[in-house]
Write a protein that binds this DNA or RNA. Sequence first.
DNA 1: GCATTAACCACAG
DNA 2: CTGTGGTTAATGC
Length: 230
Amino acid sequence: MSEKNMIECTNCNFRSKVTNTLSQQELQALSRSCLSVNAVGREKILREGAPATHVIYLKSGLAKIHKTGPQREDQILKIVMPGNYIGIQTLFTKKSNLYSATTLEGSTLCYIDFNFFREMIRTNPRFAYELIALISDDELGYFERMINHSQKQSSGRLADTLLFFANDVYHSDSFTLPLSRNDLSAIICSSRETAIRTLSDFHKSEIILLDGKHVTILDREKLAKISKKG
DNA sequence: GCATTAACCACAG
DNA sequence: CTGTGGTTAATGC
């Protein structure tokens, strides 16, 4: 991790809707409580079990939230995209992180002191409003994923994941997965073998073009159908 | 019964 | 880390 500090939050072009509610003075306070850091490739930025001290703002790049479960060692709960916060859940009542976060590619992160967040929530209703909006959307996303995970079989969950990367992350039908096969299985809640097999099934039936981690969606309709019917 | 789905294991590159 | 094949267990016609 390399430190790339001295970027003033007042001039930041990557501010969230939450921090856009702040006054100049509050933004200056944010600058004092915020450390901007560059992560190169895969770096663990939050460790499950370690003391919770900062909210991390993902300014650019991509990250995964993952957590050890009773059965498998690591399950991926979601992919975090730029403009989102990591670690707000432990802001109030938890002393340690209840999950891990790891960047999946080069990313820019802002480590923001817990106290700044608590203070703004207390004193700035618009800040609190936008933050609650963000948390609510996030929870709706979990509802969606949970119902999909429990009611679809593995091919449907894989189709969902591929469409997610194409539609929401890369805005293209041709992209390079930032995940290993094991990561992919951890995100669709299957074994590594099943993930590999389903992926190559898609390739064989010419729904996608697969070259290592590079994916090109050839038959969007079929993929959507598989995603829908499970 | 028979087919499908998916996990686990072993093993090779 | 990836990919393949065999086996097994559960579930649904």
